[in-house]
Design a binder for these strands. Structure first.
Length: 316
RNA sequence: GGCGGAGUGGCCGAGUGGUUUAGGCAAGGGCCUGCAAAGCCCUGUACACGGGUUCGAUUCCCGUCUCCGCCU
């Protein structure tokens, strides 16, 4: 796996994609998406996907991989992300991972091995969950694997199902838990930090812009392509809310407000996920009007690799 | 001015004469190995003000203030 990966992480609307492009241009890099929803074709406005023009000639990987009907999952993403990292590295370029999906980032950067899955087993367990409730399945889990039952709350049906699935498939306890953070990771992770009020303001603006840019039409179009049946894609922020609106269950304004609210909550969850990682390098982006200056500070934060690019002759 | 109704935690909104004072939303905190923009958990003693009745009042009574209707 790549030894010199740069990861640009942070809450939604903090400016990760833009900085990733700047870094790529400065360092001779290519961007790898680490956003769980930008992997879908046609989900552009609502995921704030960079346009071709905005990518400024920098190759982007792992965007537009899948049809909206296809479910996504970390294991597939991990495989693809590692290929991309290795490939970019092999060509002597710098892989720059950019995105805010915490588990995807860890999957790409660390040696997490995900036990397999089986659609039939999964479907059966989910039916049981529906019928008997999470508590009943949790009781069963406690019998099979007390440690796992302890780690998963009785109300968290989703994780209980996964634990039971893994046990059934492997015949062994579901011991999989996220590893401790290694002292230093295989990557430099830059966390784009800004104050809550500013972040919330940006989120509000961004959501308004999405609506103005024709987000509704995008969702209408995707609905015709089966978005509603897409297990993963139909749950994406904004899409989920607009599907409800299109079904006549809310107004467009309500959908917009709920999207903004949901996005703010997402940002909090992203913070609480990444905040725990002691290896992260913080980069304050609050009130930074000058992208060039931000890039400079980002390069400085990267240490030696960044310093080379900052030398005048490296140019940008 | 008269009559009627209402004043509950940031907002909405139930409710009760007395162990635990609903619920929803927002907010804050946290968890996380195959849907992760998902899923899940934790956190809020508020009853407009002043009197009175009562062993005890957010709940009953009186007054004050404010708001909303209708009337003049």
């Amino acid at each position: 796996m790549g030894e010199r990966v740069i990861a640009v992480v942070g809450p939604t609307a903090a400016g990760k994609s833009g900085l990733a492009v700047e870094l790529a241009l400065a360092l001779g890099g290519e961007v790898i998406n680490a956003d769980s929803m930008q992997v879908y074709r046609g989900m552009d406005i609502g995921t704030a996907k960079l346009t071709l023009a905005e990518r400024r000639g920098v190759p982007h990987h792992l965007l537009d991989l899948w049809d909206v009907r296809q479910p996504a999952n970390v294991a597939d993403y991990q495989r693809l992300a590692r290929w991309a990292i290795d490939d970019i590295t092999a060509r002597g370029r710098v892989p720059i991972l950019a995105g805010g999906s915490g588990l995807y980032v860890r999957g790409a950067l660390e040696d997490l091995a995900f036990p397999g899955t089986d659609p039939a087993v999964r479907a059966r367990l989910e039916a049981e969950l529906e019928r008997d409730g999470a508590a009943a399945l949790h009781t069963r889990l406690a019998g099979l694997d007390p440690a796992a039952a302890q780690a998963v709350l009785p109300s968290n049906g989703r994780r209980i199902v996964r634990a039971l699935e893994v046990i059934e498939l492997t015949g062994r306890p579901f011991t999989a838990t996220l590893p401790e953070y290694a002292a230093s990771g295989p990557a430099v992770q830059l966390w784009l930090r800004l104050p809550r009020e500013e972040l919330d303001r940006r989120i509000g603006t961004r959501v308004d812009q999405m609506w103005a840019a024709g987000f509704e039409d995008e969702v209408r179009r995707l609905e015709r392509h089966g978005l509603r049946e897409g297990r993963t894609a139909s749950r994406a922020l904004g899409y989920q809310q607009l599907l409800r609106y299109l079904a006549g269950e809310s107004t467009s304004d309500q959908a917009r407000e709920e999207t903004a609210r949901g996005t703010r909550r997402l940002a909090r969850r992203q913070e609480s996920w990444f905040r725990r990682d002691p290896r992260i390098t913080w980069l304050d982006v609050s009130g930074e009007p000058d992208p060039g200056h931000l890039l400079d500070r980002a390069l400085a934060a990267l240490g030696p690799a960044g310093a080379r690019a900052r030398a005048p002759q490296a140019g940008r």
